[in-house]
Amino acid sequence: MNTQKLTIVIPAYNEEEILVNSVHRLIDIEDQIAAKEAQGLQGIRADILIVDDGSKDRTWELVEQLHQENSRVKGLRFSRNFGHQPALIAGLNEAVKTADMLVTIDADLQDDPDKIPEMVELYAGGDDIVYGVRNNRDSDSWFKRTTAQGYYRTLHMLGVELVPNHADFRLMSKRAVQTLLDYPERNMFIRGIIPKLGFKTGRVEYKRTPRMAGESKYPLKKMIAFAWDGITSLTIAPVRLILILGTIACLLAMGMVAYAVILKILGLTVHGWSSLMVSMWFMGGVQLISLGVIGEYIGKLTTEVKDRPRYTIQTILE
């Protein structure tokens, strides 16, 4: 196999406390890969691309400093905060121009970067996509562990292909990335799209570690929004569920009409305020929820039709 280039893409948002140490550690790992030369790979070249997602701290200043110290460190800066998924897409779009294999990993390195050499070996063996998969969730709180497992089960029931316990730590070949970038949608849920690409896949298992510094960029509110985006981006099952609920409600209404007629014939009609109000509030709630779900899909369609850019790049350090 000819000389291959590896690029590690790191989305970063307000990571000044940890970025320098993370980059130095990744450079060491790249050097180990180049020295080892995975089976079938000779003369591996490697670099790092950091995507600054509109950070408000010294993150970009540190990226520029790292770039001056080592030309293997590249940088891409957004004009404002666009989000984690657009940052990944932008990094892949830029790195795929020169890279043969690309690894994405978060700046906090909670996903084990020491597994990257194993990913490269699987790539050399013919895998176009190598997933980093957590082998346990012992480091998570009970709430986070339970909700995560429930989320994966829900998506599976809705017919969504998803790799359980896999985030955005993965290796992809050049052709796999190019195929992913052919998907033009603005509301892209990358974790759900990649399994649809159809390329040969492998996996490495690892244990997630706590952050060495800084705060998580995914509080509960963002996690819920991210989960909902995943559902609405990959399946129309919620809309179908509304149809089912509406059908059931109509059948129940027909049953209640028959019940009321029978009571009227038998002279057992009882005038009740409570049952009427409960029914009105229940049906009103169902209708509002239904309109909200449908509105969510309409909103996403509006965004796609407008065809606005996913992100705006302010600066590139090459």
Rank of each mutant, 00 (worst) to 15 (best):
D112A: 12
D112H: 12
P113F: 08
P113V: 04
D114Y: 07
K115G: 00
K115Y: 02
I116T: 05
I116C: 08
P117T: 05
P117M: 12
P117H: 10
P117D: 09
P117E: 09
E118Q: 15
M119Y: 05
M119G: 12
V120T: 09
V120G: 05
V120I: 15
V120H: 08
E121Y: 01
Y123Q: 04
Y123P: 10
G125P: 02
G125W: 01
G126T: 04
G126K: 15
D127C: 15
D127W: 00
D127K: 15
D128K: 10
D128Y: 02
D128P: 05
I129L: 08
I129Y: 03
I129H: 06
I129F: 04
I129R: 11
V130M: 11
V130A: 10
Y131D: 08
Y131K: 01
G132F: 07
G132H: 13
G132P: 07
G132I: 00
G132T: 03
V133H: 02
R134L: 05
N135L: 05
N135M: 11
N135Y: 06
N136F: 01
N136Q: 11
N136H: 12
N136E: 10
R137W: 07
R137C: 03
R137P: 00
S139C: 07
S139Y: 04
S139R: 11
D140H: 12
S141K: 12
S141F: 01
S141Y: 01
S141L: 06
W142E: 12
W142D: 13
F143W: 08
F143R: 15
F143S: 09
K144M: 09
R145T: 01
T146Y: 07
A148C: 05
A148V: 02
A148W: 04
Q149A: 06
Q149G: 02
Q149L: 06
G150Q: 03
Y151L: 11
Y152W: 11
R153F: 02
R153M: 03
T154L: 15
T154C: 10
L155E: 08
L155Y: 01
L155A: 07
H156C: 06
M157R: 14
M157L: 15
L158Y: 14
L158M: 15
G159L: 05
G159S: 13
G159A: 05
V160L: 03
V160S: 07
V160Q: 04
L162T: 03
V163R: 10
P164H: 02
P164F: 02
P164C: 03
N165Q: 10
N165V: 00
H166Q: 13
A167W: 00
A167M: 12
A167H: 14
A167Y: 03
D168T: 12
F169E: 10
R170K: 14
L171D: 10
L171V: 10
L171R: 11
L171P: 10
M172G: 08
M172Y: 08
S173Q: 11
K174Q: 11
K174N: 13
K174F: 02
R175I: 08
A176M: 06
A176C: 07
V177E: 09
Q178R: 15
Q178G: 03
Q178K: 15
Q178N: 05
Q178H: 03
Q178E: 12
L180V: 05
L180Q: 05
L180M: 12
L181R: 13
D182S: 14
D182M: 13
D182Q: 14
Y183C: 14
